[in-house]
Design a protein around this nucleic acid. Structure first.
Lengths: 232, 232
DNA sequence: CGCCGTATTGAGCGCTCTCAAGCTAGGTGG
DNA sequence: CCACCTAGCTTGAGAGCGCTCAATACGGCG
C-alpha cells in the first residue's frame, strides 16, 4: 500500500510542485510546499461542488473521479474523468468558482493544493512556471475525440485514451472501467444504450473483450485507427 | 486606422504582457518586451502550419482567423476561431509543435510573441504569472457549447459566443460573420446544409435576421435560453 | 456579363435516441 | 446456502434529427 502510494507520486504530473529529495528517496507528505493535505473519499462522495469558491487545486493520488454539471434537460453533463497523477481545478482559476461538481467513482485519495500556496511556489521558480504552462497546455489538447463523427469513433478513441491513462503496465491490455455506461454516455453525449450497443459491436468484431466493467483491449492499433485523428 | 489599432490594444487580453506607459498614452510598437513584431495577412494566408516547430504565441490585433486540422475523412476539422484581442498558440506549448494550421479569414494583423521572450517576461512578475494562468484557464472553459444536444442549440450558443467576442458595442446587435457556413459546420461538426437550415429557421422564428454574412441578433436572451447551459 | 464559389432548399436515408422488455451480478436477509 | 431485490447492463423495435445527394439561387470578381 505504501508502495502503491509512492508509485502514484512517481508518475504524478504534479510531482515537480510537490516532490523533494525526501520524497524521491521514499519519505514525503506535507514537508513539500504546495501540497497541504490528503483527502480520502468513498465512491459517490463529493470533493467539491459546482459554484463553490475556488481555493484549491487537487491532484489525484489514487482512484477515479468525474467532473459534471447538470444541464438544462436535467441531464448530467460530464466534463471529464480524472485518474491517478492528474490535476483538477484549472478551469476554476478563470471564474474563481468551481465550474463542476467533482465526485469520486472509486475509493479515492487526493492531494489538496491551495492555489495561493501554488502561486507562491512558482513565483520565483522558472522551471515550475514552464511546467505549469505545459500542464495547462496539455489539458487544452485533451478531449478532442469528443468531436468524432460517429459513436463508434468516439468510443474507440475514448477507450484508447482510458487505456493510456489507466494502464500501469503498457503490456497488460486489461483494466477496470471506473465509470458506468451512463457516465460514458453523459461524457460523450450518447445514451447508455448506444454505448452498450457499440461496446457489444466492438466485442463482436474482436477489437475488445468486455464483461461489465472488466475490459481487455485486443487490437489497440485497430481501435486507434477507428478513432483516428482523435487519439494522440 | 491608428485609432482602431489602439482600440484593439485597449481591449486586448494580452495587453498586460505588452502595454507600457507609452502605449497607454498613445505611442507603442516594439518598445514592449514580449511582443516582437506585427504580421499582416490577407484572407486565406497562413499564419502557421500544423506540425511546424512551436516558437511564437500570436495575439490577434485585427481581423479573424481559424485553426484547423484535416481529419481522417479528409474533412477540415476546425478547432476554433480567433478574433481581435485573443491569444493563440497555447495548445502548442504541450507538444512543442503547432497542433493546428492557422489561416486568416479576413485581413488580419497579429502580434508575434516569441515564447522565450514571454517566459522571460513573466519570470519575476507575479501579476503576469497569475494573468497567464487566468488566460489559459479561460481557454479551458471555452467551447463547451460544442457538446450541446441539438444543432439548434449549438448554433444558438455559437451565435451568442460570436456576438460577445465580435461586437465592439454591446448595443449594436449586428455584425459580420467572418467565416463561411462550411466553416461553422466544420467547427460544430454539422454540415453546411444543416447550418444553413437552422439559421433560416432562427430567422423564421424572428430570433435573428440574417443575409449571407450580415447578421443581426433580434432576441439575444431567447438565443441564450436555447443554447443554455452552454452560453456563459 | 459570365463564371465560380457559396448559400439555400428539398427528398430520402441512416445513425442515434426513445421506450420498453429482459438479463446479470452483487448485496441482503432468512 | 439460497431466494429475493435492485441497480446497472443488454437487446430490440420504431421514431426523429442530421446527413447525403442534388438542383437552384445568389453575389463577388474578372
Amino acid at each position: 500500500m505504501a508502495d502503491l502510494a509512492l508509485l502514484q507520486c512517481d508518475c504524478c504530473t504534479f510531482s515537480p510542485f510537490c516532490s523533494n529529495k525526501e520524497q524521491a528517496s521514499g519519505l514525503l507528505r506535507h514537508v513539500n510546499s504546495a501540497v497541504k493535505q490528503e483527502h480520502y473519499l468513498k465512491p459517490k462522495e463529493v470533493l467539491c461542488f459546482s459554484n463553490n469558491k475556488f481555493r484549491n487545486l487537487y491532484v489525484v493520488k489514487q482512484g477515479a473521479l468525474k467532473a459534471y454539471q447538470n444541464d438544462v434537460d436535467g441531464r448530467e453533463s460530464i466534463h471529464g474523468f480524472y485518474f491517478a497523477g492528474e490535476v483538477l481545478g484549472f478551469e476554476a482559476i478563470y471564474s474563481s468558482h468551481y465550474v463542476f461538481s467533482i465526485v469520486a467513482l472509486t475509493d479515492v485519495v487526493v492531494c489538496e493544493v491551495p492555489y495561493d500556496n501554488f502561486l507562491n511556489l512558482i513565483k520565483s521558480k522558472t522551471d515550475l512556471q514552464k511546467r505549469i504552462l505545459y500542464l495547462m497546455s496539455q489539458q487544452l489538447n485533451a478531449k478532442s475525440y469528443l468531436m468524432a463523427s460517429t459513436a463508434e469513433r468516439q468510443i474507440s478513441a475514448f477507450l484508447v485514451d482510458l487505456f493510456s491513462r489507466l494502464a500501469f503496465d503498457e503490456n497488460i491490455h486489461e483494466f477496470i472501467l471506473p465509470m458506468s455506461r451512463q457516465d460514458i454516455g453523459n461524457y460523450l453525449k450518447l445514451t447508455a444504450e448506444t454505448v452498450s450497443r457499440v461496446l457489444s459491436r466492438l466485442q463482436k468484431n474482436k477489437l475488445i473483450a468486455i464483461n461489465y466493467k472488466q475490459i481487455r483491449i485486443l487490437q489497440l492499433e485497430e481501435l486507434r485507427k477507428i478513432g483516428d485523428g482523435f487519439c494522440k
